[in-house]
Amino acid sequence: MAEQQRKTTTYLRETDIWRLDALARKQGISRAELLRRIVSDYVEAHRPERDPLPVFDLGEPMTLEEQREELYEALERKVARR
């Protein structure tokens, strides 16, 4: 499925239009198609980098007994704060 297109209007220098037309003719495409490709290539090349995802260290795996002990200790600490 092709991406939706939307019409825009941009003012260009006359000499740039001539150059675009010459390039488009050489490639056998319309000026509009050439401009779409140029813009697409440019924005792809200048896409902002994404921040890396954070890395979490959850420690070593725990046995069921260790999990129960941790839970029990956490509950004891919570009760002691009351």
Rank of each mutant, 00 (worst) to 15 (best):
S30V: 04
K26W: 08
E69I: 03
I17Y: 15
E76D: 03
H46E: 03
R37L: 06
L34I: 02
V43T: 11
E33C: 09
R25V: 00
I17C: 13
T15I: 02
T15F: 15
V43I: 10
R68H: 15
G28K: 07
R25K: 10
Q67C: 09
E65I: 01
P54R: 01
E33L: 07
K7Y: 14
E49H: 11
E33S: 11
E49F: 12
L75N: 12
L23M: 15
L64W: 11
E3L: 07
R77M: 14
G59Y: 01
R25L: 02
E65A: 04
I29M: 13
L20F: 14
K78S: 04
E33W: 04
L58V: 02
M1V: 03
V55S: 12
I29P: 00
A24G: 02
K26Q: 07
A32M: 10
G28M: 09
R31H: 11
E49D: 07
Q5R: 13
V79Q: 14
L23W: 11
V79M: 08
L20K: 00
Q27G: 07
T9V: 10
D16N: 06
R81D: 06
P52W: 02
E3Q: 10
R50H: 04
R47D: 06
P54N: 00
R82S: 11
H46P: 00
I38Q: 15
E76A: 04
L23Q: 12
S30Y: 02
S40N: 11
E44R: 06
L35G: 00
R77W: 10
L12S: 07
A22V: 01
D51R: 10
K7R: 09
K26D: 09
A24Q: 00
T9K: 12
Y11Q: 07
G59N: 03
M62P: 02
E44P: 01
M62Y: 14
R81E: 11
H46L: 02
A74T: 03
Q5S: 10
R25C: 04
P52A: 09
D21V: 01
I17A: 14
A2G: 07
W18R: 02
Q4S: 04
R37H: 14
R6H: 12
R77Q: 12
S40L: 04
A45F: 04
L34T: 01
R37K: 09
E49A: 13
V43M: 10
W18K: 06
A74G: 05
T10K: 15
A32S: 12
A80L: 13
Q67H: 05
L12W: 14
Y42N: 04
K7E: 10
R77C: 03
T8V: 13
K26I: 01
Y42E: 02
R47P: 00
E69G: 05
E66H: 14
P52S: 08
A24K: 00
D57M: 01
D41A: 13
R6D: 05
V39A: 15
T9C: 10
V55K: 13
R81Y: 15
T63I: 09
Q67S: 06
S40K: 15
A80D: 12
P54E: 00
A32Q: 07
R82G: 04
Q4R: 09
L53S: 11
V79Y: 13
D16P: 00
D57F: 00
R50A: 03
R77S: 09
M1L: 05
Y72K: 07
A45L: 03
R13S: 03
Y11R: 12
R82Q: 08
K7M: 05
